[in-house]
């Protein structure tokens, strides 16, 4: 072989050599990384846009409403014509009430599900349950809000007689349901990352599955589990539609769970659906509230980041 192909060989090489000098190809090669970098810069611009927008409009807000009365005020009465009050504490308390109930609902269930999936379930069971949890995570929050308002609240009212139609309890529980998949799947990831030899070591000593889960796997996966809870908390703080539909629009500076409340997110929605004129203190107040909300979630995400970084297990 070889010889008959010899003349042909030159031609293919020539064809290749001819296209090697292709200027368009070279120009593309140089332009592509620049274009892609600009595209990647969009996400940075988004962050700058978010922070810039919030800061600028919040600063304008503080020219109309004193900063101190905003962060210490116990009354949020933006729509009062005579005596508008912009004390954010009631909105923060409303947010924290819902978040608190959501977390105490979601953590036990989410963690149990994670332990079950990671330590007890067979592969087949896992293959069925995990997609179902994913479906739970994929349901739009507007649907959850409707569910809270039309099903969970009436159900709770039969048990708790004094429960108002808008309250903190029902949206809190439903937000909890919404964040269960997040806690379950992130915690399960953390537990599955614990190497099997550690489990086998304990099982070989005669430990039961429960003892392995609680005394060996949980401590080893603790940082991942904590991070999942913090991230889920952040999600609960930022949740909007469930609390808008089922929580009410009554900012309240108290610790009750049965009365109507308002969260930071629900206030932003209330103003957006109303007709507050551009340039009024009410208009700027949604940015001040949005900024506060942003700081809360940023803090949570930062904590989660620190937890995973600091306690990263070295197996």
């Amino acid at each position: 072989m070889g010889n008959p192909a010899a003349p042909k060989r030159a031609t293919v090489r020539q064809m290749i050599a001819k296209s090697a000098g292709n200027k368009r190809k070279r120009a593309a090669e140089r332009a592509v990384p620049v274009v892609l970098f600009l595209i990647a810069a969009v996400s940075v611009l988004t962050t700058i846009g978010i922070v810039g927008t919030l800061v600028a409009e919040t600063v304008t807000f503080f020219t109309k409403v004193p900063f101190w009365s905003f962060i210490t005020g116990r009354e949020w009465l933006p729509f009062s014509n005579k005596d508008a009050q912009f004390g954010i504490l009631p909105l923060i308390i409303g947010t924290l009430k819902v978040t608190f109930i959501a977390v105490i609902t979601a953590v036990p269930i989410g963690l149990s599900a994670a332990i079950y999936l990671s330590e007890y379930a067979s592969d087949n069971t896992r293959r069925i349950i995990k997609p179902v949890l994913e479906v739970l995570a994929g349901i739009p929050t507007i649907v959850y809000g409707f569910f809270a308002l039309t099903f969970v609240t009436p159900l709770l009212q039969t048990v708790i007689p004094g429960l108002k139609i808008f309250n903190a309890l029902s949206p809190g529980i439903v937000v909890g349901i919404m964040i269960i998949p997040m806690i379950a799947s992130l915690s399960e990831d953390a537990m599955s990352a614990v190497p099997n030899p550690i489990r086998e070591g304990a099982l070989a000593l005669g430990a039961t599955r429960f003892e392995v889960a609680v005394k060996v796997v949980l401590p080893a996966a603790l940082s991942g589990i904590l991070a999942s809870v913090v991230l889920a908390t952040s999600r609960a703080i930022g949740e909007t539609m469930i609390v808008s539909l089922a929580g009410g629009a009554t900012p309240a500076f108290n610790l009750g769970f049965t009365d109507s409340i308002q969260t930071m997110t629900a206030y932003i929605v209330q103003v957006s659906t109303g007709d507050a004129g551009y340039g009024t203190p009410i208009y700027y107040s949604i940015y001040a509230v949005g900024f506060t909300l942003f700081l809360f979630t940023l803090l949570m995400n930062w904590i989660a980041h620190r937890i995973t970084k600091r306690f990263r297990e070295a197996y």
């Binding site: 293919v12 064809m15 290749i16 296209s19 292709n22």
Partner: peptide, 12 residues
């Protein structure tokens, strides 16, 4: 290889 070097003629 031929394609990335600009050879598109199906026969070739």
């Amino acid at each position: 290889g031929p394609r990335i070097h600009g050879i598109r003629n199906r026969q070739i």
